[in-house]
Nucleic acid binder design. Structure first.
Length: 855
RNA sequence: GGCCCCGUGGCGGAAUUGGUAGACGCACGCGACUUAAAAUCGCGGGUCUUCGGGCGUGCCGGUUCGAGUCCGGCCGGGGCCACCA
């Protein structure tokens, strides 16, 4: 077979694209833009297969849209601040900056071998002052606008990373990176007021019709809007009251106790002098942090001996301190209605409190209905034993209860969110310095804008725990910009999610030295038309960015609030796992197949084949994209990644799969190079008519054009690949019998090459030039499907008898119902099935089916 | 515990608003080429069959002329959140 030199050919076309600046994006008001963005990588050292999948998907979209005539922007950059750089500094004695910048160089080179259509002129790295000085300016604007503030608060402290984590970065009570159980600490922290946008962020989700439903639901749940009421109960014997948040004030007549959080401001006053109080509080704080422990932890209460007055009735309820009440949600206090809340029921049973149902389930008798071990939490039913709410359905009763509370002056309607403000202070070196100065006289003073950037010092040491910039001998000492007194810089740096909350805007004007971006340019390129990345950022990066864009809007930077119009979340890449005879994980490259059994490649010792799991370094089930690209070429890798598995699902990486893709790349090359000499010259006029087989080849080709377009647009890349293979199979099977046939063959082959271009850009360029085209395919518009060829003139449909397929018939497209019925009934298979039976009805759906109903 | 998603050949997966289930590929088997192997090319396949056909999309039932697709109830797998009042 003719040789396809993958390495040379791919390098050749990459160089040509580079020379001709094929992917440089320039604002052009006369052309419709299309912004394709993949989540930028953290420069950890080497790209992994997850990156390859992500950027391949984006590249297919970018190349396709570009061919369709859009002015495509497809940038790339580096999420370059973060803790791994500091860990590397500790472990390898490399400076975080040097380590990061050299990783970027390596990874940029690796990405370039993939043949991505990226405009590298727009490359950004978040760790350079040219980037983060703008972030500091933005922070100061937020500060001015009241969107950034500092307060002392309980924070999540990661004892391994020695830093604070945002709520979103605590997973199962553990740090999202370190996996260490987080501790509670009280610290002075900077916050961004994301809660001010809670409603807007929630409402905006409705408009995100090109986002996955799953992500939208996750964000909705994370924001967690609850409508309810804050109602105050007077404390008996004290001139004070406590506010309680509830979404079910309709159950107030069933309330039999109240519980406040251990860190509620009233807790000490009410429980302080009772024996056992200190022990109880201590006990509450030591509850384990794993999710199981939290969910199953025994609900414990401490009876303060105090009581509160019921707001509607003349009765009192005991006040407990409970280990299950959270101070940072609602008011940190709840009333217990055991009949209609399972947790309250468990608590009531444990402490011998009364259980009074107030909602009667449908079909129950009010005289006999009793609560057993299960609370009736369902909201269907009618209120009873509830005075003014009697007879009301739950939703109406809720409104009535709130109205009553408001008219009594006992409280008011509130909307409660689960979302908390975003804590952005990190006690780390490798991040964007927070540009403020603490002055003993003036307090917190912003760094004047003409003094930006506040640059990270290079000469820091990592030989002691804690923040390297905090112990730098000079860096933090400065003069107060207001009064000139000796003052200290803020030594905390920003959460790296700040960096990634606006990088997509920086891409719009990446070289601008003075501004984060020119508003005109951002207005042209934004919003992102297609964003692609992993689902793991559903409530982190994707929510922060939505907030950040709105905050920027309110500071006058942009005229819109929603950054990403279209989102696609790709699945993970998985691989088989292997263990050696000692039960240690081993790399796939250390395994070889001995017939049906897996053995160690070196000594032939037995290997245990384990589950197929997400690629991870710890399980060693990883493959290195660089090696794979070197062996099989970028096109084969791209093809394999897009074949078979739908992009949103997990993709199992297999050797057989990549080899299959590689064989196909070679087969395509041979197919086209073998037939090129038989083709008419490019530009030969279209013949008047075609023989039958040429006609059907043309239909196949034009139908493929139409289908591939929609398949790429709706991210069904696996189906696009299948269609390409079908067309190449048709071309391989075709033998022209006339000049017209040869013309049809050239047409189909050109179409094949054009539609495979987004997926296999190098091979298609090569074959395009083999066919005698001087222009590069990247400059060639997407082929147009001839509508006349999109429909076959005959159609094969099934004939059913009582719903079971008995035959197929082929009819002209123009055939009427009667023709179809006649043809169907004439089929021998149909005849056999209806023999001796009465035909009751014949259903004909033209172009689809004939169903003969017999009885 | 709450919310959400998914169950189709040996495997990954196709199947437009309900209309020929299994496209396309992987693996496999057979054949050709070869001294041989690899590569390549060709052919084959859901399953049972008395060769008429029967049975088949996790299970049970329903709607319909017709259900992988819609509805109800189970069973199994996965994801996200999780003491949120």
């Amino acid at each position: 077979m003719s040789r396809y030199n993958i390495r040379e050919t791919e390098a050749k076309w990459q160089a040509r694209w580079e020379e001709s600046a094929a992917f440089r994006a320039t604002e052009d008001e006369n052309r419709e833009k299309f912004y394709v963005l993949e989540m930028f990588p953290y420069p950890s050292g080497r790209i992994h297969v997850g990156h390859v999948r992500n950027y391949t998907l984006g590249d297919v979209v970018a190349r396709y849209r570009s061919a369709c005539g859009y002015n495509v922007i497809h940038p790339m950059g580096w999420d370059a601040f973060g803790l791994p750089a500091e860990n590397a500094a500790l472990g390898r004695n490399a400076h975080p900056k040097d380590w990061t910048l050299s990783n970027i160089d390596v990874m940029r080179g690796q990405l370039q071998t993939m043949g991505l259509s990226i405009d590298w002129d727009r490359e950004v790295a978040t760790c350079v002052p040219e980037y983060y000085k703008h972030e500091q300016k933005i922070f100061l604007d937020f500060l001015k606008k009241g969107l950034a503030y500092r307060k002392e608060s309980m924070v999540n402290w990661d004892p391994v990373e020695n830093t604070v984590l945002a709520n979103e970065q605590v997973v199962d009570g553990k740090g999202w990176r370190s996996g260490a159980p987080v501790e509670r600490r009280k610290l002075n922290q900077w916050f961004l007021k994301i809660t001010a946008y809670a409603d807007e962020l929630l409402d905006g989700i409705k408009e995100l019709d090109r986002w996955p439903e799953k992500v939208r639901i996750m964000q909705e749940n994370w924001i967690g809007r609850s409508e309810g009421v804050n109602v105050r109960f007077d404390i008996v014997g004290k001139d004070a009251d406590i506010a309680f948040f509830s979404t079910r004030p309709d159950t107030l007549f069933g309330a039999s106790f109240v519980v406040i959080a251990p860190d509620h401001p009233m807790a000490g006053e009410l429980g302080g002098n009772k024996p056992g109080f200190a022990e109880f509080i201590k006990d509450c704080q030591s509850v384990g942090t794993s999710e199981e422990a939290i969910a199953r932890a025994e609900k414990k209460g401490f009876d303060t001996g105090w009581t509160v007055k019921h707001p509607f009735e003349d009765r009192e309820m005991p006040v407990f301190i409970g280990n299950f009440v959270l101070m940072d949600y609602g008011t940190g206090a709840v009333f217990g209605c055991p009949a209609h809340d399972q947790r309250d029921l468990d608590f009531a049973r444990k402490y011998g409190l009364s259980v009074k149902p107030v909602v009667l389930p449908p079909g129950e008798d009010p005289e006999t209905f009793e609560i057993g071990d299960e609370a009736y939490e369902t909201k269907t039913g009618v209120h009873y034993q509830s005075e003014f709410m009697n007879g009301m359905a739950v939703p109406d009763a809720i409104q009535a209860a709130i109205a009553k509370i408001e008219s009594l002056g006992k409280g008011h309607r509130v909307i409660q969110y689960r979302l908390r403000d975003w804590g952005i202070s990190r006690q780390r070196y490798w991040g964007c310095p927070i540009p403020v100065i603490h002055c003993p006289h003036c307090g917190t003073v912003p760094v004047p804008e003409d003094q930006l950037p506040v640059e990270l010092p290079y000469d820091v040491t990592f030989d002691a725990p804690g923040n390297p910039i905090a112990r730098h001998p000079q860096w933090k000492h400065c003069k107060c910009p207001e009064c000139g007194a000796d003052a200290e810089r803020e030594t905390d740096t920003m959460d790296t999610f700040m960096d990634s909350s606006w990088y997509f805007l920086r891409y719009c004007d990446a070289q601008n030295p003075d501004l984060p971006f020119d508003p005109q340019k951002a207005a042209y390129w934004m919003t992102v038309d297609q964003y692609i990345g992993g689902v793991e950022h559903a409530v982190l990066h994707l929510l922060y960015s939505r907030f950040f864009t709105r905050a920027l809007r309110d500071c006058g930077y942009v005229g819109f609030g929603e950054p990403f119009a279209g989102l696609f979340t790709q699945g993970m890449v998985t691989h088989q796992t292997f263990k050696d005879k000692n039960g240690q994980w081993i790399f796939p490259t250390e395994v070889r197949m001995d017939g049906e059994t897996a053995v160690h490649a070196e000594d032939g010792s037995p290997v245990t084949v384990g589950r197929i799991e997400k690629m991870s370094k710890s399980k060693k089930n990883v493959i290195d994209p660089e090696n794979i690209i070197e062996t099989y070429g970028a096109d084969a890798v791209r093809l394999f990644i897009l074949s078979d598995s739908p992009p949103e699902r997990d993709l199992e990486w297999t050797e057989a799969g990549i080899e299959g893709a590689w064989r196909y790349v070679n087969r395509l090359h041979k197919l086209v190079t073998d037939l090129v000499s038989d083709l008419p010259a490019p530009g030969t006029p279209e013949p008047k008519s075609f023989e039958d087989n040429a006609e059907s080849l043309r239909r196949a080709a034009h139908q493929a054009v139409a289908e591939i377009g929609t398949r790429i647009e709706d991210f069904h890349m696996n189906k696009a690949v299948a269609k390409i293979r079908e067309l190449s199979n048709a071309i391989a099977a075709f033998t022209p019998r006339t000049d017209a046939g040869g013309w049809a063959l050239r047409e189909a082959t050109e179409i094949l090459i054009q539609i495979m271009n987004p997926i296999m850009p190098h091979l298609s360029e090569e074959l395009w030039s083999t066919l005698g085209h001087a222009d590069m395919l990247v400059r060639t518009p997407w082929p147009k499907a001839d509508p006349a060829l999109l429909q076959d003139d005959s159609v094969t449909i099934g004939v059913q008898v009582n719903g079971k397929v008995r035959a197929t018939i082929t009819l002209p497209k123009t055939a009427g119902k009667d023709d179809a019925e006649k043809a169907a009934l004439a089929e021998p298979g149909v005849q056999r099935s209806i023999e001796g039976k009465t035909v009751r009805k014949v259903i004909v759906v033209p172009g689809r089916i004939v169903n003969v109903v017999v009885g």
